[in-house]
Design a protein around this nucleic acid. Sequence first.
DNA 1: TTTGGGAAAGTAATATTATAACGATAAGCG
DNA 2: CGCTTATCGTTATAATATTACTTTCCCAAA
Lengths: 174, 174
Amino acid sequence: MSKPSQHQRKIKQNMKHRDNHSVCIKTALSRAEKRCAEDGQRFTGLRRQVLELVWAEHKPAKAYDLLATLSSIRSGVAPTTVYRALDFLQERGLVHKIESLNAYVGCSQPDTDHCGHFLICEACSEIKEIENSRVSSWLEQAAQDEDFIIKSETVELIGLCVRCQPLYGERATP
Amino acid sequence: MSKPSQHQRKIKQNMKHRDNHSVCIKTALSRAEKRCAEDGQRFTGLRRQVLELVWAEHKPAKAYDLLATLSSIRSGVAPTTVYRALDFLQERGLVHKIESLNAYVGCSQPDTDHCGHFLICEACSEIKEIENSRVSSWLEQAAQDEDFIIKSETVELIGLCVRCQPLYGERATP
DNA sequence: TTTGGGAAAGTAATATTATAACGATAAGCG
DNA sequence: CGCTTATCGTTATAATATTACTTTCCCAAA
Ligand SMILES: [Zn+2]
Ligand SMILES: [Zn+2]
Ligand SMILES: [Zn+2]
Ligand SMILES: [Zn+2]
């Protein structure tokens, strides 16, 4: 169990981040731009807008919600439009799909080659990509017991985030 | 890395199992029957048939494929029919949904309360539920670093099973 | 044995998520 | 500039899943 002080610290971190979320978006966009330039890929207006919408919150974005929002700022938008952009962004590692929600989220570490592992709050929907590669090596171990070679991983942990625990569940430490 | 002998042993285990798969089905059905009886739930003909079809192979079963097959052995089958049976079976822990495939698979350890963790072969589709609870405790650790409380886990590892590695990928040990 | 209440299944319609096919446009390149 | 190809627009349709309402069936109490 974590100490109360640590718990409070985490909550503060989280609140501070929420105040500065525009930084996340800017960072994500400039990284994407750089990354596409390096690969000789075109980071078009459409792709930029979709990535921007995906990053609008730290929550999973549904394709048809993106479609609706996008329609309000651009004409001739169909499902294909959104899915094509999402495919492009996923191929470049800029966006992950959350399989258990049929939703999409911006990658917070697009400079490394990885499968996303996520913590998803069932109360507030906030989603966090785990930055820890220990998980992958643990899973490798488990797979090796069966002589199985992993190519990609879907890891989505549903539960309560640090802010929602006092409201909806057991708190970490009273 | 595992030794060649171990690799061969795994392959033999696997082949033997394929010859005796009817045992899996029978076991699954009788467990389900017992389990429902204990809970005071009705294990109806429909539910039994759906569970039987889910268990027909060690592969993920798609809802609309179940629907088609079921239609051939019973009349008045609609999507609702299948989804209701699947919901029932999931609630009782007899079936898991594979989120990354939109498909369903029989639980191989319905007597324990757990989230399924899966190895899924991308070559032959064979799927295996990992029986190892180490994984859960590892994931708990990772979540604790973020003061996150896990309620449920989606863990789906895609790759190559022991039989398909020589055909499609690097072998474990030449 | 009858009968009433609730669970299960039937039925129809619709919502949600995703892809296919093909033509029009625009960016990059020699 | 004209060529090539990636991108995007447009339309249609496939695949997955749920809602709402009705009918049937089981079981247990009277
Ligand atoms: Zn990522
Ligand atoms: Zn939360
Ligand atoms: Zn299971
Ligand atoms: Zn295989």
